[in-house]
């Protein structure tokens, strides 16, 4: 019995090792499957994964309107104080005061791209963009204002 087990051990070991060698050998003779991207050369047609997260941006439509109500859910969700929402009070024509977004401050230098702010947003006002070329010569340039100048909240978003 022992001899039988011994031989079957060797047989299975050799078989599984050969299976592994077949896989790697297959990759070796099929260079077409190489997934390395030659970055600076292929800048024009980068092939990024759909889920790649580069930075937070605010979605603006063609009328320069966004969907941010200034509720600060993203600010509360952020684990390392990357987002700071500054709100103001808009006065509607009929004299009612309404809270609205003044400045969406985003500290890129603190952001870990964890996506929690995007998930927290009740109105889908922000999303993750794929841009990853963030290097600048001055740290202050990394502090960004996400809402475009002159933009306002879209009608009907509460």
């Amino acid at each position: 019995m022992f001899i039988k087990e011994y031989i079957s051990d060797i047989y299975h070991a050799v078989k599984s090792l050969l299976t592994g060698m077949k896989t790697t050998g297959g990759y070796f003779i099929r260079p077409g499957e190489i997934i390395t991207q030659q970055y600076p050369e292929n800048r024009a047609d980068l092939n990024l994964s759909e889920r790649f997260r580069g930075e937070v941006v605010m979605i603006h439509d063609e009328n320069n309107e966004h969907a941010c109500t200034g509720c600060t859910a993203c600010e509360l969700a952020c684990p390392n104080a990357t987002i700071k929402i500054i709100t103001k009070f808009d006065v509607s024509p009929d004299g009612k005061k309404k809270k609205a977004l003044d400045t969406f401050v985003y500290h890129l230098e603190l952001c870990t791209m964890c996506n929690l702010c995007v998930e927290a947003c009740p109105t889908d006002a922000i999303k993750m963009a794929q841009n990853f070329e963030h290097s600048v010569y001055d740290r202050s340039k990394l502090t960004k204002k996400l809402n475009q100048p002159g933009s306002k909240i879209r009608e009907g978003v509460e």
Partner: peptide
């Protein structure tokens, strides 16, 4: 080079 190609990479280039 061999290592890179077996791991679907390019290696030094």
């Amino acid at each position: 080079k061999v290592a890179a190609h077996m791991q679907i990479r390019l290696g030094p280039n």
